[in-house]
């Protein structure tokens, strides 16, 4: 198999890993004021992702790095052309990461509420921005023959890329709700389950709509299959969450996002970033990729690295498999109150 195709699949896989893993992180953050009625409940929610969010976030760094190494023109073209959404994502991720770490370090309501706001905004903006970016690469941007954007800074903001933004946001919200139901116990678990059941049809709608849009515009015959898988998995997720089977619902959502990513990247192939001006300007797996030597080296690194990551990251989830409830949350702690 040609290495360009291998790397196209690897990059799709990295984005899938990112959407799946940090998707629920974002959802947990977005739902903080909705499901967390007290500070203790909000801490329950934050602690469901406390040990894992940072590892989840590395997926986007590696996805970006892999694009840089394997398809420099794709990395350069997309990241400069979709400049504004990416900037907002970065600003939000910075605030959010610091917020998790700093929120509990001063025992003051004002302090915690301020960081809670950062967490909510910092968890809402990235899925929206990443939705715009993924939709832009799948649906195309106005690129000239050099792979540079023609037109204003706002070319990535269109009604069809907005649908992509809603899709990633809707999925993250839903995935987060199911994750909270899966990882907590007590009252908050019940509320998360009810909320997930209630919002599922609305939250999953833009996902399905965007996948259908991409299928209609660019889809291959075989991507009808992955599209069908997405829809079927979403229905299964709805059925299982309503039945109180959080683990199964969570897995079904995983299948749904997998089907969606396969549909999007399957429809995109062999392009990586189409030009909406002229098909001749489109970046493809062939004209955007690195040389065979680089791809061979990277393939070896990925072949050993990726399974290792999956194993030890999976182990983390096993170590922290315990459901968290309000009684687990220790009293707030303050550096200075004990100072002498």
């Amino acid at each position: 198999m040609e290495l360009e195709i291998v790397w196209f699949v690897v990059i799709a896989f990295l984005w899938l890993g990112y959407l799946f893993l940090e998707g629920f992180d974002f959802g947990v953050g977005m739902l903080l004021p909705v499901l967390g009625r007290s500070d203790t409940e909000r801490r329950v929610m934050i602690n469901t992702i406390g040990p894992v969010w940072d590892g989840n976030e590395v997926w986007i760094i590696v996805a970006g790095g892999a694009m840089f190494a394997a398809f420099p023109a794709w990395y350069a073209g997309l990241f400069s052309a979709a400049y504004l959404p990416l900037l907002f994502v970065l600003l939000a991720l910075i605030g959010r990461g610091v917020a998790f770490e700093y929120r509990g370090k001063v025992d003051s309501d004002r302090w915690r509420r301020a960081w809670d706001k950062v967490i909510v905004v910092g968890s809402t903006v990235p899925p929206v921005g990443i939705g715009f970016i993924i939709a832009s690469t799948v649906l195309g941007l106005p690129l000239d023959a050099d792979g540079n954007r023609v037109g204003s800074a706002f070319e990535a903001f269109r009604w069809d890329t907005l649908l992509g933004a809603l899709a990633v946001t809707g999925f993250s919200l839903l995935h987060g709700a199911v994750f909270i139901a899966l990882k907590t116990d007590g009252d908050i678990r019940r509320r998360a389950r009810r909320l997930a059941t209630a919002i599922l049809p609305v939250a999953i709608l833009p996902v399905a709509a965007f996948a259908v849009l991409v299928q209609v515009r660019h889809g291959a015959d075989w991507t009808y299959v992955s599209l069908a898988v997405t829809v079927a998995a979403a229905l299964v997720a709805w059925w299982r969450i309503a039945a109180g089977r959080e683990g199964q619902a969570f897995a079904a959502l995983g299948v749904a996002i997998t089907g969606t990513v396969v549909t999007l990247f399957g429809a995109l192939f062999p392009d990586v970033l189409p030009s909406t001006l002229d098909a001749a300007n489109s970046l493809t797996v062939d004209n955007a990729s690195s040389g065979d030597y680089t791809l061979t080296v990277m393939t070896w690194v990925a072949a050993f690295g990726t399974p290792a990551v999956l194993v030890y990251q999976g182990w983390t989830y096993w170590v922290f498999r315990q459901r968290i409830k309000t009684s687990h949350i220790p009293a707030p702690h303050n550096a200075q109150q004990v100072s002498r």
């Binding site: 590395v58 760094i61 590696v62 970006g64 790095g65 892999a66 840089f68 190494a69 394997a70 398809f71 420099p72 023109a73 990395y75 350069a76 073209g77 990241f79 792979g147 690195s290 040389g291 680089t294 080296v297 990277m298 690194v301 990925a302 690295g305 990726t306 990551v309």
Partner: peptide, 19 residues
Amino acid sequence: YSRFVGDVFGAPLAMEGLV
């Protein structure tokens, strides 16, 4: 820059992330 040198420069960056 990225487009010009990505073939070489991108590799250590991607390795840094993965490893």
